[in-house]
Simulated assay, not measured.
Amino acid sequence: MSKVLVVGSINMDLVAQVDQFPRLGETLFGRSFKTYHGGKGANQAVAASRLGAEVTMIGRVGDDAFGQELTASLIAEGVNTEWIQRSANTTSGIAMITLAGSDNAIIVVPGANADLSVEDLLAAENAFRDCDVVIAQFESPLATIEMAAQLAQSHGKPFILNPAPAMPLSPALLAQVALLTPNEFELSIALGTPENEWQAALQQYPGQILMTAGKDGVWYTTESGELRQQTSFNVNAVDTTGAGDTFNGALAAFWHLGLSEASRIACAAGALSVTRAGAQGGMPTLAELNSFLAGDTK
């Protein structure tokens, strides 16, 4: 199993369940409210750890009760939190999530995540040396993510970038990415190309982009430019929150198996994650994933 280094966000998710999304200016009664541990970085770290990877995380939390709880939760999940810092006089990051059926709408307030700095990464350079693969997202400052890519490259480690929330990618950063994992919308923003030209974009960067496509699974190209699809798995969806993070965490955990097999396993993990509520609450263990895959004929 891969040794995974995650650079990214740590949030508390505040989740309200409603019958339908409110319109602008409208107040609706909700069905329920719960808190869950989240943040794209922490989610991917937990996903990889539950699947048996040795995971280290670099991130920041606030000096509040959420920060204490979030760090303790990562430790309980087997994640190495040596490089998670606490920002003084700052709240931890939060995500306000509204669920309507199997759909979600999310507002993220970065809090301490915005303090994750280039200096934090340089102080943790040994973590880059000791890992097998590095994965990051865009819920941390761009300069910090660019430094993560540079450190990964300098230590000869593949750098997986999940470009969410979506933003344009510089040619310099893209050149340092071993694998970009956007959805169709994020791919369009990242490369500045029309959404309906995603196939051309994948073939322009052979072996470097894997595009997630929801119920259609994922699309990617081989290093020779051959377009391939890994189809999705049929499950009864309860909550889609965190499915993409589960996919990315699993992809990093099984990176050593090659893109084809890693993407198949990651699709299965992502499918399992939507069968239970919560971003991290739905993430499968290795035993659950193996059991699920035992009946797979794809």
Rank of each mutant, 00 (worst) to 15 (best):
E26H: 06
E184R: 15
P168H: 08
S260H: 14
Q208R: 15
S73T: 06
P165E: 12
N104H: 08
L121A: 07
A166G: 06
E195V: 11
V133A: 12
S87F: 01
M57D: 10
L289I: 03
L286A: 11
D63G: 15
E139K: 01
Q176R: 13
G52V: 08
R276D: 13
S263T: 15
E261R: 14
T35D: 05
A42G: 15
W219S: 07
P22Q: 06
G214F: 10
A172Q: 15
A253K: 05
E186A: 08
Q68R: 13
L5K: 00
Q150G: 10
A114R: 05
L24C: 05
S170P: 00
M1W: 04
A42C: 08
D63K: 01
G192R: 10
A287G: 06
Q203K: 15
N43D: 12
S263I: 03
A123N: 14
G156I: 06
V274G: 05
L180S: 09
G258S: 13
P158C: 09
E125R: 11
E288W: 06
D216F: 05
T35I: 06
V218E: 11
I160L: 11
V177I: 15
V218D: 07
N43G: 08
G242W: 01
A269K: 00
G242I: 06
F33Y: 11
T212A: 08
L272N: 01
G270D: 07
S73N: 14
E69D: 15
A53K: 07
L173E: 04
A16S: 10
